[in-house]
């Protein structure tokens, strides 16, 4: 079988706002599938970290959203789409240590301001678009 005719495998998960109990499940499922598929462990680690950070962002900051992973033999494309509230200042949000997480979240050990920077560090291509009131879309390519 040639790689270029393989149709991509798509995994898609809805992540609920504020649901800390299930937080991490989507990224764990994606990670485990990549392992069964025989992807190199360095790639799996990066995908795991990037999707986990994204999942936590959806739980903490968004009104809920979807994590989608499109798996091809040589590349994993991840897109995260939420319905709001949107990021007012993306440049600031991309700075290490900058966080808008409320005190209650920080007390739980989250909100260190490393989420988006970590995602960018794990991805080969990182794209973020956000519109206040409309939501945020992140696209990452990891190979």
């Amino acid at each position: 079988m040639r790689d270029n005719i393989v149709k991509p495998m798509v995994m898609s998960y809805f992540v609920e706002k504020g649901n800390f109990t299930c937080a991490g499940e989507a990224s764990s499922k994606i990670k485990n599938k990549l392992m069964k598929l025989g992807f190199p462990s360095s790639l799996i680690r990066r995908v795991a970290i990037a999707t986990y950070e994204a999942e936590m962002n959806l739980v903490i900051h968004s009104w809920g959203g979807v994590i989608k992973a499109e798996i091809k033999p040589d590349v994993v494309c991840i897109s995260i789409t939420d319905t709001g509230p949107g990021i007012p200042n993306i440049d600031k949000a991309m700075q290490e240590g900058y966080s808008t997480a409320p005190e209650s979240i920080r007390e739980m050990g989250f909100g260190a301001g490393m989420g988006l920077p970590n995602m960018r560090n794990c991805a080969d291509t990182f794209n973020i678009e956000s519109q206040k009131g409309k939501g945020t879309t992140i696209k990452m390519i990891i190979r």
């Binding site: 393989v6 598929l37 025989g38 033999p73």
Partner: peptide, 20 residues
């Protein structure tokens, strides 16, 4: 060394087919 026994196939494309 890793012990690679959980993957479905050595070839990722075939593994994807098997996963499907």
């Amino acid at each position: 060394k890793p012990i690679e026994v959980l993957k479905l196939d050595d070839n990722i494309a075939i593994a994807m087919q098997k996963m499907e």
